[in-house]
Design a protein around this nucleic acid. Structure first.
Lengths: 346, 346
DNA sequence: GATATTATTGCAAGCGCTTGCAGTTTGAAG
DNA sequence: CTTCAAACTGCAAGCGCTTGCAATAATATC
């Protein structure tokens, strides 16, 4: 009954409306809202009342323009379809939200060109900081970043020599570690199914890691055992099909995502090839499903949530207290499961 | 060599800077940027030159404030961890991006309370429209929406009587359709593993659908066969364990997401129960992996991409041309696969 | 040639909110 | 009773960009 709005209809209430209703100046309302301690308690209460009476909602753009910053950070990722990115985004959003920051999203589909565009669009939109994936940004993007002066943190790949602060794992070590495990198990011909390594430095480094492990024992990755696909299940399965149909068959296949590994396993199953036993298959990322499939999948867990937390933390420290942001190396973890179990004697 | 910035350092270039450099007024620059046809070609070229010379990037907040709208829409979802939401978000982002709109994200974790908060935060942030999930918004949220007057479209559930325009499937029909298939196959004791139905109207309606199918043949869902879990793999697996450990075992289990179904299957496998044969398991959503697991999973596909497209389309039509937004029913699709194959005679 | 159009551009008034600075009030100290 | 600091508030000046309106220049109509 006390709810009928004063104004005729549309126009949302402004600071001024609240001020008028509360019988104070706009400045006071503004302060009451952002620095309550500066305002007399009685006044503040009257203002609070007016605010809810009018259903007043501060106008973000006006605030941003008047110098408070936009309170938003942009996150540019290849695609939400890959679980790790979704987890990263969700974690960052949750953490920043607590501090009143929102997040704006951009997808690249793995295209560096689009990465630039998306980042730029987000900057234009006014983000106070940017999160990018990996450490292989185009020079153009790097230039934009320094020109505009937005703080940036990159995710998922730790690289000492990165131009930007980064939080991630040592992908080369991760690749090597997985390969060594395979070698230990007796699988010596290792193939790789990966996303395009040109636009994906994480994959590139993992390949290097595998190659490095092979080199230790005097071998190398055969060119025909390195297959790129778009990262989704169908194309990964095709890739496995190609591997299986080749002259020589690999004894082990490492896929740079669990999704691809599961697809590869499906192809083996379809062709009646035992996993493990005839072929070992390993994944990457350690998504929640990897231990629910048959056989449970060996994988290198990439702690997306931890990375997201560390990034959010850094961003906030910088945004709130202007603290310098530094890089952080987080540990990957080898999840040993059946898919790379013992080799069956042939 | 011709790249040294005029200004000493920081302050990003403004419209005024460009105007000065190009020897015109700010208004002209503004027009050259947003309505090129209104500006003389020669002038426009000079402006373009000045823009790139200065690396000028328009200030989003100022634009928004000056009346162009924020060019952003907010999307509030339970969690990106569920593939369908990630797909929805990605699709919407991609489509809106083409039109120069960005998207702001909010996660609720399935909590209606947080849904309100997140929606409000997004409104405050200035989104021009909102996308919500399902049709069970709190009255409070509905009020906020009408108060502020933001256009809203809800996703994933089609409901004629919804207060808001919605784009989605008929969840009750989807549930019924899956149950009927199970019944056809001879599985007559159907259990359900679901996310909490209180905060999730889609699940509630699916339950209704299953119940309705059962009622057709004079049966009902036994209370102990309706189990809620948080929707993630581990808890779904536990739920399956509970089902298996009960007095009476169900003959079929429908899970309201493929992820849960895969987890449930894992539990059966661990207990040496044949799927199908002893127990049939079906999922929901039709994620890319569902036909790669063993056994391939029967599922009801919810076309997230199509829904996202339709929503983006509607939003844009409204945002650009003020067209009214209406609801749309999209078809679900029963994907018949082995996990609900023939019942084995006991 | 004179007048009506049309094409370009500049002016100035904000959009809604934050903030430095200054005025007012009040209580304490001298 | 003054004097002064502390506690509140209000004033006014923007933040960077868009836009209706007016002014000027260029082109077209009689």
């Amino acid at each position: 009954m006390a709810d009928e709005p004063i104004s005729e209809k549309k126009r949302p209430a402004t600071l001024g409306d609240v001020a008028r209703l509360a019988g104070v100046s706009a400045s006071t309302v503004s302060r009451a809202l952002s620095r309550p301690d500066l305002v007399n308690e009685a006044t503040r209460e009257r203002i609070t009342w007016a605010v809810s009476r009018l259903g007043y909602i501060p106008h973000g753009a006006a605030r941003a323009l008047a110098g408070r910053g936009h309170r938003a950070v942009g996150v540019v990722i290849p695609s939400l379809r890959f679980g790790v990115f979704a987890e990263l985004v969700e974690t960052i959003q949750a953490r920043l939200d607590e501090a009143g920051f929102g997040i704006l999203l951009g997808h690249t589909g793995g295209d560096p060109e689009r990465e630039y565009e998306q980042a730029r669009a987000l900057v234009e939109r006014g983000v106070d900081a940017l999160v990018l994936i990996g450490n292989a940004q185009q020079p153009r993007l790097l230039r934009l970043i320094t020109d505009v002066g937005v703080p940036v943190v990159t995710a998922f790949d730790y690289d000492e020599s990165s131009a930007l602060p980064c939080v991630g794992v040592d992908n080369e070590a991760a690749g090597r570690c997985l390969a060594e495990h395979l070698l230990d198990q007796g699988y010596d011909e290792i193939a790789i199914i990966t996303q395009p390594t040109l636009s994906n430095d994480r994959s590139g480094k993992r390949v290097d890691g595998v190659a490095s492990a092979l080199r230790q024992i005097g071998r190398a990755v055969r060119p025909e055992f390195l297959i790129e696909c778009d990262g989704l299940a169908p194309s990964a399965r095709d890739a496995m099909g190609a591997l299986l149909g080749g002259e020589k068959r690999p004894r082990a296949v490492v896929c740079f995502s669990d999704l691809m590994a599961i697809a590869a396993t499906a192809e083996c199953r379809a062709q009646g090839i035992a996993v493990p036993g005839e072929i070992a298959i390993a994944g990457f990322s350690g998504i929640g499903l990897s231990d629910m499939v048959d056989p449970p999948l060996t994988s290198v867990r990439i702690p997306a949530v931890e990375i997201g937390d560390l990034i959010a933390e850094r961003l906030l420290a910088h945004l709130m207290d202007r603290a310098a942001v530094g890089s952080a190396l987080v540990a990957h973890e080898l999840l040993l499961r059946e898919s790379t179990g013992a080799l069956r004697e042939l």
